Amino acid sequence: MSQAATAVALTLPADQPQTTHTATRALRAQTLSDLTVTMKGEAFASASYNLFGTEADREAHPATGKLFRATAQTELNEHLHQAAALAGVVGTNAANLRQAINGETYEHQVMYHGFADQARNDGDPEAAKLFTEIAADEGRHRDAYRTALTVVTTGRGTIPTPPKADTVPVPAGLPKVKAARTKANLDTAMHGEALAHAKYMLFAARARQTGNPALAHLFEGTAGVELHEHFASEAVLAGLVRTTKTNLNRAITGERNEATTLYPRFAKRATAVGDEAVAGFFRDTAADEAKHATAFQQALNQLH
């Protein structure tokens, strides 16, 4: 599916929610689950590759930095957007706000508090502090979205001012946590923050398309916090960014897994239940990821 096709799928009248690829039958639950896994993975790859590109520039490997950033854009603007269109992620402004409220509520009330408790018990106080701070942020995001939903549904009131991200730099370095459970929770959190950023940018585009720039600004501002503050802070503790050689090796491993194992399995499952359009997407994306792996391998071979 082309980027143009995705743009069309995301441009619908204000009162018409986005549908899945067929008007006659909803996607099977497993297919939707696989699309969600795909979106999390592609969002995480995009966010990670942008950081890897910055590190490559710092190490004086500009061509590799450019490759990382270009691949990051493909993962986000093609693969994730296509998966979101097939899954019907973007709906009306009200539906998008409700989806955002549900996600922020879970992170505020359940996920991050749980992660903080576990990190504290496992001897990772720095992670516990970060998780607690992010939980509070997500509560504020939820409250802002609730206010915005009231404005959208009643026509009364004012859309809240968008939050501003406190951008966190992510230098190369080892993990700053010790417990395996904390490391796993940081990975889960980073995938969630990357996906939230990507979805909120799609929701912002819908809001702007439907003549609501204030709501678009709210989604965009919150997306910036999720990526440049939350994801970045978690990436520092997780030691996400290493040397460019290590970053390339990790990228190659991930792309090859998607090309040879993950997406072919998803395609097979989608075909088995008759979700052919999604199966085709998975096959096409697998082919793209194989090309990414080859490009990253070539970049690795050229490192001095």
Rank of each mutant, 00 (worst) to 15 (best):
T167C: 06
A144Q: 14
Q302W: 00
I252M: 07
D122L: 10
T244E: 05
P160Y: 08
A238Q: 10
D143Q: 08
A94Y: 12
E59P: 05
I252R: 12
E133G: 00
R242F: 03
V273W: 04
T222A: 11
L80Y: 13
T285L: 01
R250I: 11
A60P: 06
K129C: 02
L80A: 08
E42A: 03
T24G: 11
R208Y: 07
V89L: 13
K245F: 08
A267M: 03
R25H: 15
V152A: 06
H141S: 05
M39Y: 01
Q302R: 14
K164V: 09
D284G: 12
A204P: 01
T38Q: 13
V89A: 01
Q82C: 10
A47G: 05
F68K: 04
A299D: 09
R208P: 03
D34K: 00
Q209V: 05
Q30I: 11
Q209H: 12
A9F: 00
K245W: 09
T253P: 00
F68V: 03
L186G: 05
R98K: 11
T182P: 02
A116R: 03
E133R: 09
A144R: 15
L202K: 01
I159Q: 05
R181G: 08
A56Y: 12
T24K: 13
A95I: 09
V8D: 03
Q118L: 13
